[in-house]
């Protein structure tokens, strides 16, 4: 095969020139502000005090990590919301993707319809669900009453436990479609010949699922879960509209507490420090995840 050399040949400056518009913009809107907010995280910039601020060393970081029970509580809340959401999104997403892969007619349109929640903003999703959950005039309670299974006055935010259930429900509604699409892509990339060969060997559907689908889908599942995990650590819009962190602080996530520190307490430096604590935590979590993955693969080999 002939290698088309001309298309690959380049002048020294060309790769840079082509990438430069994006690089300049990124430097301007991301790199510089990041550096600046990193600098701010060592200051005591407080909007209600004024524009002046001074160096306070690691004070913001030590306060966030050791002296702020509310922030530490929100780390726990975030975990409590993330764990069931991830499991449910994965299971439901896989289930729906497998159903979809069986469908021969109208698959694109059904996929599109099912995908819509994932394309709606968290704020919109939460607004819609607020009207679904509403005591007395919400759709769920009214439907429940007509079916005779729910009191129309059932309060979806009456206790920390039930509120977390409600938040997880909305989160699952919002992002299962994303998981479904990822897994559907994964399913479609599995060669059909494998299934046919298995069928010839007399494998039943259950065996085919365990020995072909699951192993080959593992990588896609890991990627999907990883992306959702990272996104869930930023869970904010949903909480903002649906519960505002309540009742009590039971649904306050790390992103929400950070928002409160910055936008309600006006402590911009502290909020910046908290964001870096979060990014650090997520980074460690991600690396741990990849490391575990690698160890397991090594063991399997």
């Amino acid at each position: 095969m002939r290698i088309p050399a001309l298309a690959l040949k380049r002048k020294q400056w060309e790769p840079f020139a082509f990438a430069s518009p994006a690089m300049v913009l990124i430097a301007f809107v991301i790199v510089f502000p990041l550096a600046y907010s990193f600098y701010l995280s060592f200051q005591n910039f407080d909007l209600s005090v004024g524009p002046e601020h001074e160096f306070v060393g690691l004070k913001n970081y030590t306060e966030g990590i050791f002296r702020d029970p509310r922030f530490l509580g929100s780390v726990w809340n975030t975990a409590v919301i993330i764990a069931p959401s991830l499991v449910l999104e994965l299971l439901l997403g896989l289930g729906i993707a497998m159903l979809l892969s069986r469908v021969l007619h109208g698959r694109p349109i059904i996929t599109a319809l099912l995908a819509i929640p994932a394309m709606v903003s968290p704020v919109m999703a939460a607004m819609a669900w607020r009207m679904m959950f509403g005591v007395k005039y919400g759709a769920i309670n009214n439907l429940g009453r007509q079916l005779g299974i729910l009191d129309v006055y059932f309060d979806w935010f009456s206790s920390p436990f039930i509120s977390i259930v409600a938040v997880v429900l909305v989160e699952v509604w919002h992002n299962t479609p994303f998981m479904m699409l990822v897994l559907l892509a994964g399913l479609q990339s599995i060669p059909q010949e494998l299934y046919e060969a298995a069928r010839v060997d007399g494998a039943n559907p259950w065996q085919r699922f365990w020995s072909i689908t699951l192993p080959l889908l593992k990588f896609t599942m890991v990627v999907g879960v990883m992306i959702r995990l990272i996104d869930l650590t930023k869970l904010f819009g949903l909480i903002f509209v649906l519960t505002y962190g309540g009742p009590g602080g039971s649904t306050e996530t790390v992103a929400f507490t950070t928002y409160l520190a910055g936008f309600k307490d006006f402590r911009m430096s502290y909020a910046a420090a908290l964001s870096y604590v979060i990014v650090g935590g997520v980074l460690i979590l991600t690396l741990l995840f990849f490391w575990m993955q690698r160890v397991r693969e090594a063991r399997a080999a």
């Binding site: 209600s48 005090v49 509310r70 206790s159 920390p160 309540g246 009742p247 009590g248 602080g249 039971s250 309600k264 307490d265 006006f266």
Partner: peptide, 23 residues
């Protein structure tokens, strides 16, 4: 007084913590 809003919000939060029976 300065930070009035923050004092109130911190207290408000703890009150709801008690109402939600978390404390």
């Amino acid at each position: 007084i300065p930070a009035a809003d923050e004092y109130q919000r911190k207290l408000s939060f703890e009150i709801t913590e008690a109402l939600a029976k978390r404390k």
